[in-house]
């Protein structure tokens, strides 16, 4: 057991894969001497050299496109995209090339590229630095998308993503980079593509992921004081989604709230609501409710707290669900 922040847990996970497999390399902007704008790769270039921790030219499509080429040569590139809002120049390479090469080649080629993207708001930044674009990628077959919410998962899911033969996008909850927690460096406990019940309850299920897991846990704590027992699921994997864990919980509680920072329209919450309706309709005591972002570009930092799901908005949804 070791106590570390999410950021340092990722650093440790990256150090482990770099040490373990000479074919791995990290590529990104400012990740070498600077250690990345969030210092997640701090010290790694000094330790592993400039060929393994590569400061690339400033071009996201270039980072992803060359990573794909490296993977054809047997390498396992781990790409850092500096901020969520800057992934879009690479969107073409990710969706038309990376996601499809295995299918196009009838399984002859794989591109096990990992993409790390710090995402989400709540950091008081300027535009393009606080977005949650996970649904845009989840819609593309061929990609896997995961998001850790705590240091233990950050440490292990980083390594599990690199070990996976499929391309994996890791959305890292940037406002939680400094969240500290215990990391069991001996055992992951579970695979990267499963959900985890992080608090057991009987009245309502809240599904959250990434930066909102602590918010959901705090809301559950507050609800407990009012006598309501809330089960909280950390989704962990956005593609694929572990519907078995979600369905089992809803069959027990009969009520479901899904929360994410991304806009609710066309989002992951809608997908979960539809699947749960198909699987557990007769167990439902209330409609599935979503607590998420509005259908607008990410708002200005000075008012972002009105956009981001918080404890009060979750409790309000909880009241509506219970009153149904």
């Amino acid at each position: 057991m070791a106590t570390m922040t999410i950021a340092k847990a990722i650093t440790s996970g990256l150090r482990a894969v770099l040490a373990d497999d000479p074919k791995t390399l990290i590529m990104g902007e400012d990740i070498g001497k600077l250690g990345g704008v969030y210092r997640v790769t701090e010290g790694l270039q000094a330790e592993f050299g400039a060929d393994r921790v590569v400061d690339t030219p400033l071009a996201e499509s270039g980072i992803l496109g060359t990573a794909i080429g490296l993977s054809f040569r047997g390498y396992r590139p781990i790409c850092e995209i500096q901020f969520d809002g800057f992934v879009f120049p690479a969107f073409n390479q990710i969706t038309t090339q990376l996601a499809k090469i295995r299918s196009r080649s009838s399984g002859m080629l794989s591109a096990p590229v990992v993409i790390r993207i710090p995402y989400g708001g709540g950091i008081g930044s300027i535009e393009h630095h606080s977005e949650s674009p996970e649904a845009l990628f989840a819609h593309t077959a061929g990609l896997r998308i995961i998001t850790p919410s705590n240091p233990h998962d950050a440490y292990w899911m980083t390594q599990q993503a690199v070990a996976c033969q499929d391309p994996v996008i890791i959305f890292e909850p940037k406002r939680r980079y400094w969240l500290k927690g215990e990391v069991d460096t001996e055992s992951a406990g579970r695979d990267a593509f499963s959900a985890q019940v992080v608090r057991e309850g009987t009245d309502v299920t809240i599904v959250a992921y990434g930066p909102l897991v602590p918010v959901a846990l705090a809301a559950a704590e507050a609800a407990q004081e009012d006598g309501n027992s809330v089960e909280v699921i950390d989704l962990r994997s956005i593609s694929p989604i572990d519907f078995d864990t979600v369905t089992a919980s809803v069959e027990k509680t009969g009520r479901l709230i899904v929360t994410h920072e991304a806009p609710t329209f066309g989002g992951i919450g809608g997908e979960i609501a539809a699947r749960v309706a198909e699987r557990a309709f007769l167990s439902m005591e209330a409609p599935v409710l979503r607590v998420g972002g509005f259908h607008m570009p990410y708002p200005l930092a000075k008012v972002e707290e009105q956009y981001l799901p918080d404890i009060d908005r979750l409790l309000e949804a909880l009241d509506r669900s219970l009153a149904y």
């Binding site: 499509s61 060359t66 080429g69 040569r73 590139p77």
Partner: peptide, 18 residues
């Protein structure tokens, strides 16, 4: 998808260098 492969060629060459 026009020119997508030009980056793959460069990435592959970076692997050759390594």
């Amino acid at each position: 998808v026009l020119a997508a492969q030009s980056l793959h060629a460069v990435g592959y060459a970076m692997g050759v260098q390594r």
